Amino acid sequence: MRQFYVFIKCELGRTYDVAAALVDQLEEARQVHSVSGSFDLLAQFSVESDADVGRFVTQRVQTLDGIKDTQTLLCFNAFTSDRGLGDD
Rank of each mutant, 00 (worst) to 15 (best):
M1G: 10
M1K: 03
R2W: 02
Q3G: 01
F4N: 02
Y5T: 00
Y5C: 00
F7E: 08
F7W: 09
F7S: 06
C10W: 09
C10A: 08
L12S: 15
L12C: 09
G13R: 04
G13C: 07
R14S: 07
T15E: 13
Y16M: 02
D17P: 00
D17H: 10
A19R: 11
A20Q: 14
A20W: 12
A21R: 15
A21Q: 15
A21C: 02
A21S: 15
L22M: 02
V23L: 11
V23T: 15
D24V: 02
D24S: 11
Q25V: 02
Q25H: 12
E28C: 06
A29W: 09
A29Q: 02
Q31G: 00
V32D: 09
V32S: 11
V35E: 10
S36M: 03
S36K: 02
G37S: 08
G37N: 04
G37R: 05
S38K: 04
S38T: 06
F39Y: 15
F39H: 05
D40P: 04
D40F: 07
L41P: 14
L42A: 02
L42F: 13
A43G: 06
A43M: 03
A43C: 13
F45M: 01
F45W: 12
S46Q: 08
S46P: 00
V47M: 05
V47E: 14
V47T: 13
V47N: 04
E48D: 15
E48I: 02
E48H: 08
E48K: 14
S49Y: 13
D50A: 14
A51E: 15
A51F: 11
G54L: 10
G54C: 06
G54F: 06
F56C: 05
F56G: 07
F56W: 10
F56H: 10
V57K: 07
V57P: 06
T58F: 08
T58Y: 12
Q59L: 03
Q59E: 11
Q62H: 04
T63I: 09
T63L: 08
D65A: 11
G66N: 01
I67V: 08
I67P: 01
D69C: 04
D69V: 00
L73F: 12
L73H: 09
L73V: 12
F76W: 07
N77W: 10
A78Y: 08
A78W: 05
T80N: 14
T80H: 13
S81Q: 11
D82C: 03
D82L: 02
R83M: 05
G84W: 10
G84M: 05
G84E: 05
L85A: 11
G86N: 12
D88L: 06
D88T: 05
